[in-house]
Nucleic acid binder design. Structure first.
Lengths: 212, 212
DNA sequence: GTGCGATGTATCGGTCCGATACATCGCGGC
DNA sequence: GCCGCGATGTATCGGACCGATACATCGCAC
């Protein structure tokens, strides 16, 4: 998962570890807490060893002011390689079961702008199926095993069931949108305050403004 | 987390691994997928080594029919010890930051029937605080960094924000209920079909019917 | 000039997952 | 009668990721 996310982000622009973590946190904030350095740095090393990314030594400020007084290790900027882009494409294409669990789906969804429509559809439907299964499981427990469980556990299940039903509806809308051409923008099902003006969806596909 | 859940479940009745997993799945189905044997069995061994649980060898059928033709290892039933109960109480009392993350909170909540009211309140409020922080983070991104992100990422954030707002409301109701005496039963905020008849909440505290 | 919060890289132990292996039991079908 | 097969049951191994920790630098306010 981390591998996927890093490869995806580095396609937008080269970055060093710290920056990568911040961008990751911003992009994936909805689905998981900040990612740990304890996984980030080892993963970067692994990707580098595999040849998916390379270390692009940061040109120190204006290239002549270099203090060199200190060890001057400084930030290590990583950029994606051609092999890395290929790898990313391959990771998008192949969908294992982990593609549909909470984290896996979230990460894939976050990079939908780099995913072709057919794959987007496949992932959305796979996720829906998975959530529907979870929903049925919860309904079963709430129905059949209700008397075996205490009131708090039951309340937890109800809340979970509600979340499942809500997500299924969300996915339905996304799938419908996807089928009929245009990009996301579910019509604000929440109570969440004011949706800001424009937000016109870009055409599906490559969308993000690459920084030069 | 697993340690906590196992100790909690074994207080209700002795069980063997497989059964433990099923009960765990039923009780925690709302917050996480089935727990893996790859963590369950090692954890059982760890708990046993620590003296929190003991192996209560299953009396094989009628105690004389024992075939012994095969290795006859069979199921290993575990029961909690006095130390184990003490440990569980201690785990409830001390709340680290992990008590408020998705999994940690869910597991604690699932055992609220064994938790005193003051602690329940503390955990609910801690969770609310945490979710409010996540919510603010998402609002920030949606506000400040909106133009830097593609339409899909934004949609993901919106969905996440919606979930946060929903959970905060849920927690508010639980907290209000908790303060004014009686147990859970949030008034069915969902579209979720028919709530079955009674469901009268038991008084807070020990509630679950112990199997003899 | 000095302290302090943000920036930045890095490692270590521990928890948990997913895949895999293997044995037993009960039951329906042939 | 016996064969297969799905549910029950215990177990290990490699790998992913986390949380704590350590340490160095930079910019800036006091």
């Amino acid at each position: 998962m981390l591998e996927f996310a890093i490869l995806g982000l580095l396609q937008e622009s080269p970055m060093h570890g710290y920056e990568l973590r911040k961008e990751l946190t911003a992009k994936l904030g909805a689905i998981r807490a900040a990612i740990s350095y304890g996984s980030l740095y080892p993963t970067l090393r692994r990707l580098q060893a595999a040849g998916w990314i390379t270390e692009a030594a940061e040109a120190p400020v204006t290239a002549e002011e270099v203090p060199a007084l200190t060890t001057r290790r400084g930030r290590v900027v990583y950029k994606i390689t051609a092999d890395g882009k290929e790898r990313f494409a391959q990771l998008i294409a192949q969908a294992g079961p982990e593609t549909y669990d909470d984290t896996g789906f979230g990460v894939h969804f976050a990079f939908f702008a780099r995913t072709d429509q057919a794959t987007r559809l496949r992932i959305l439907e796979g996720r829906r199926r998975k959530i529907e299964e979870r929903r049925e499981g919860l309904r079963d427990v709430l129905g059949r095993a209700a008397e075996r469980l205490d009131a708090y556990t039951l309340e937890l299940q109800r809340h979970g069931l509600d979340a499942c039903e809500r997500e299924v509806r969300w996915l339905e809308e996304l799938i419908a949108n996807e089928r009929s051409g245009r990009a996301p923008t579910v019509p604000h099902m929440g109570t969440a305050g004011g949706r800001r003006e424009d937000n016109s969806p870009p055409p599906p596909g490559e969308t993000r403004n690459e920084r030069p």
